[in-house]
Nucleic acid binder design. Structure first.
Lengths: 121, 121
DNA sequence: TGTGTATATAGCGTTATTCAAATATAGTGT
DNA sequence: ACACTATATTTGAATAACGCTATATACACA
């Protein structure tokens, strides 16, 4: 028998795949909605103003990368974030963007609004 | 102060672009080296076992997304992470992977080794 | 000026992601 | 069985990211 030494490369690939899941505007918006509480696809559609197909497609990507989990209930499906650390990750990311965006006014305003919204909830 | 080269259409796009920068195994490895201390391209080449062109290329991506900053000094160029929060982000990500990988032995072992290495430093 | 060294960029074929439209599945009520 | 609703998957064309090789730039020093 022989040992298959898994290169550290594979670990980084795994990590990269995870970040790939976050590397899309719609998917980020989905996560920021879903991280608060479980949501149906319909709710997501409305919140995002996107059609059913698009939302389902992006949810499929998030599912494939194990960022999000689906719970079927009759004919509707509810989504949650698999790990609360995903939320924490998004928070750190927000802080990061906040410090990076200093100087670009419009985006900053957006960011602030988002932060307030989250605190209030 | 910091200036975004291409004004992104909206905030989520900006965020997505940032995560895109992390969505590549080599770039993650680069960041995990560079986050500790400033490194020359040469040092990175050696540490990664990759050729000059590849390393420079990935550094270019990280630069374009403002994750990393270059400091030229004579003929050599030293790279640093722009914001220490990037390091924090990687830490949260590591915790996340750690909890996700429970059950896949080999990758877990790799992950542990990495964590130890970092603590020790 | 010329040569060597460190780093960056261009060109290009291959693969992966995206977007939108169409179609498929699965559950519920009649 | 049929129709209706909620969600998922497939398809295909457009675009972006990759990996590799070759070439370019920029600096140092003789």
């Amino acid at each position: 028998m022989f040992r298959v030494a898994l290169a550290p490369r594979d670990l980084q690939t795994f990590k990269a795949d995870f970040f790939k899941a976050l590397a899309h505007p719609v998917r980020i918006r989905v996560l920021e909605i879903v991280r608060g509480s479980e949501r149906t696809v319909q709710e997501l559609q409305e919140a995002l103003g996107l059609d059913q197909s698009t939302v389902s497609q992006q949810l499929a990507v998030l599912r494939a990368k194990h960022v999000v989990r689906a719970r079927k209930q009759g004919t509707t499906v509810r989504y949650t974030v698999v790990d609360p650390l995903v939320g924490e990750l998004l928070d750190v990311a927000r802080r990061l963007f906040n410090s990076q965006l200093t100087g670009t006014q419009t985006l900053l305003r957006e960011l602030r609004r988002e932060t307030r919204r989250q605190v209030r909830r």
